[in-house]
Amino acid sequence: MSRLLTDEELDRQLQDLPGWAVDGTQLLAGFEAPDFPTAIRLVDEVAAEAEDMNHHPDIDIRWRTVHFALSTHDKGGLTQLDIELAHRISTAAGRFGVRSRG
């Protein structure tokens, strides 16, 4: 069972997640794809990863820009699940040539 991460734990782990930032109880990042189809492929890849983890992000897509918001809602904040999903999202973005907007 996941527990809420401390501010110190979040700060340390965010050092390995460029472009990601904490905003209250959410972990946020934006990515810019070279085109709309690539943005959709990124969302599709993230959907598969999220389903595999049974941990689902909020996703907002506007043309070729994709924003992700992660939070462990039943814990009321951020857990290791959010950090793991952020890593998977960043890795997928790299495979598709999608740049972090952070």
Rank of each mutant, 00 (worst) to 15 (best):
T6F: 08
S90P: 04
H56L: 07
I40P: 10
L81P: 08
A47V: 12
R64V: 07
V22A: 05
D16T: 11
G97K: 03
H73F: 01
D44H: 14
I59Y: 01
I40T: 11
A86Y: 01
P34C: 10
H73V: 12
A29G: 12
F31K: 06
A92D: 07
L28K: 11
E9M: 07
E49W: 04
E84W: 05
I59N: 09
D35S: 07
R88F: 05
D7F: 09
E51H: 11
L42I: 10
I61H: 00
A21T: 15
G97C: 05
A33H: 07
I83R: 00
S71I: 02
F36H: 11
A50E: 03
D60N: 14
D35E: 09
G94K: 02
V66R: 01
W20E: 01
L42Y: 14
A48V: 15
E8W: 10
F36I: 08
M1R: 14
E84A: 12
T6H: 13
E32Q: 13
K75D: 05
G19V: 03
D58E: 13
L5M: 10
F31V: 05
I59Q: 00
D44A: 15
L85A: 09
R88H: 03
A47F: 08
T6L: 08
D7M: 06
A47R: 02
W20C: 05
G94R: 01
T91W: 10
L14F: 10
L42K: 03
A69F: 08
L5W: 04
P37F: 15
P34W: 07
A93S: 08
T91V: 13
L27E: 03
I89H: 08
R95D: 08
D7T: 12
A48N: 14
A21P: 11
V46G: 02
G19I: 07
F31M: 05
L85E: 06
T72A: 07
A93Q: 00
L70G: 02
R99T: 14
R62I: 07
S71L: 03
I83M: 04
D74Q: 02
E51I: 12
V46P: 01
G30Y: 00
G77F: 00
L28A: 10
Q80M: 05
F96R: 00
V46D: 06
A29I: 05
A69P: 00
R99S: 14
L78C: 03
A21F: 10
F36W: 05
E32A: 08
D58N: 11
D52H: 15
D35H: 02
P57G: 04
A47D: 12
D74F: 02
R99Q: 14
G77T: 06
D16V: 11
D7S: 15
G24M: 10
A86Q: 05
R3K: 15
R12T: 13
D44G: 14
F68V: 00
